[in-house]
Write a protein that binds this DNA or RNA. Structure first.
Lengths: 171, 171
DNA sequence: GCTGAAATTCTGGAGTG
DNA sequence: CACTCCAGAATTTCAGC
């Protein structure tokens, strides 16, 4: 990667594990003034190294206790299909959507209010892709041992009975 | 969810799509003073609704252009296996690790410098789980159409030749 | 990339319904 | 109890170097 040094990468790594750290704190960690960190960060955002910032939310608190992984095998990914996929990606209960190698070429993770909503979603997928979808399969997420680069503040789908070793640090 | 109202959920949704929004801005969006937003947010963090904050980083800029989805079928998930999984989750090239229903009961997403590193990783997985791993399969992520609840600022693994319709908004 | 000063935001406590 | 207001502290931001 041209124009990116180890300082920049360190900034990216820190920001990945603590997205709300202040520029001042970040500056202390990488031995740079807040202003310098800011200008580097602006560069990194401009270059697309930083896609955005997000809070990691337990979907149960948003009324979506059912998380599913959905695998789709598409016969071909033509421009028309891509527009469908783009639309799918824009849904606000879809966390991620990947094109991948392997038996199924699409993987999607979504949140649902209940099994009925998941069923409806699958039905609409079938309708959307029609004969182009050679196979659609859904798995339920039973437990998230890790999500999104955060440290061990893990949780269960059935409401964290886990020991709370280590509060998140923001200082 | 007891003790969580629509205001709280709105805060969670906003924070999920913009993790670095300021309390003042957030307050404007939900018609609350910064101080109130702060106390609600503290409650939400205490309850575990907010797991943490993260920047979404293009792994290529960290020297890991290869992203893989790895499926594992474990014969059983006993306490010993769980400790292995926890260790796996703690690796800093592992983005997520789920237990799930279906043919393979573990799904992992990881970043790698190159194919060799991926191969080594798979080999170490085989060694770690031994005969308990009935199957280990790896797929490559070809394209991320969506990742982590951010809007359409999508990118390709092979360095964004995509049209840049829509800059990320932070205000 | 740093400094310094102005603008903005954060934060904790007192006060209100 | 949840909220607002307010003042001091911290952070962000931008100019100039």
């Amino acid at each position: 990667m041209p124009g990116i040094d180890e300082r920049d990468r360190e900034i990216l790594r820190i920001l990945r594990s603590n997205g709300r750290i202040t520029l001042t704190e970040l500056g202390k960690k990488v031995n740079l003034s807040p202003a310098s960190v800011k200008s580097r960060l602006e560069k990194l955002e401009r270059l697309g190294a930083v896609k955005g910032y997000s809070a990691v939310i337990d979907p149960a608190f948003l009324g979506n206790p059912v998380t599913a992984l959905i695998f789709i095998r598409l016969k071909d990914v033509d421009p028309y299909t891509r527009s469908m996929l783009r639309e799918l990606a824009s849904l606000d209960n879809v966390e991620f959507l990947y094109l991948k190698t392997g038996d199924h070429n699409v993987l999607l993770k979504g949140e649902f209010r209940d099994m009925d909503e998941l069923r409806e979603f699958l039905k609409s997928l079938k309708k959307t892709f029609g004969v182009n979808a050679l196979s659609i399969e859904a798995n339920l997420v039973v437990e998230e041992l890790k999500n999104c680069w955060l440290a061990d503040t893990h949780y269960d789908s059935d409401c964290g009975r886990e020991k709370d070793y280590g509060k998140r640090q923001r200082s």
